[in-house]
């Protein structure tokens, strides 16, 4: 039997086998490495955890008050407790509103009645940005979007806040 008549020549067979063994070695080497590298991608998305901000619902008035609390943040092996701030009040219907104080213009920190010239408004000292009580930006001032609101729930008479949800620009 001559070599030409064979479907797969000896040389071809060896080439295929070489490719196969090489592929096996590469896969065996790289599989654990790649799985390790993409691990963060496969982690389930973190749930916005609600944190007790230490404010009883009955203490919430119709005047916005500043609330500071800390959230637990786990970044791999690094645990930290970054602070969060909100302005909390009850609106006319008795619903609790929790506004993020981060100005939507350039991210400065706004405060309730921060300027004596503008009562009943949130005021940003950086560029005189203003928001009405419900967090909507006043037209003609720098910000282009309302203040974000926090996700919230009430348990045992205490206020729990979650993630800040941005609102669409007005």
């Amino acid at each position: 039997m001559s070599e030409e008549k064979q479907q797969v020549s000896r040389r071809q067979f060896l080439n295929y086998t070489l490719t196969g063994v090489g592929g096996f070695m590469a896969a065996g080497l790289l599989a654990p490495m790649l799985r390790m590298a993409i691990d963060p991608v496969l982690q389930p998305p973190s749930e916005g955890e609600f944190v007790n901000v230490g404010l009883a619902v009955e203490d919430i008035t119709t005047t916005p008050q500043r609330v500071d609390w800390k959230i637990k943040q786990v970044d791999g092996w690094y645990e930290s407790e970054p602070g969060r701030t909100a302005w909390v009040y009850k609106d006319d219907n008795g619903d609790i509103i929790a506004l993020s104080p981060i100005c939507t213009h350039l991210g400065c920190v706004v405060s309730w009645e921060g300027s004596e010239d503008h009562p009943n408004q949130f005021f940003c000292p950086c560029h005189d940005g203003r928001y009405t009580k419900d967090g909507v930006n006043v037209k003609g001032t720098p910000p282009l979007a309302p203040l974000p609101t926090f996700e919230q729930k009430v348990e045992n008479g205490m206020l729990y806040l979650g993630k800040a949800i941005p609102r669409k620009g007005a």
């Binding site: 963060p40 982690q43 998305p45 973190s46 943040q73 092996w77």
Partner: peptide
């Protein structure tokens, strides 16, 4: 983003 940053939200240690 998660692949580059090592976390979906935090830009941190990872």
């Amino acid at each position: 983003k998660a692949l580059l940053a090592g976390d979906e939200e935090i830009v941190g240690a990872q």
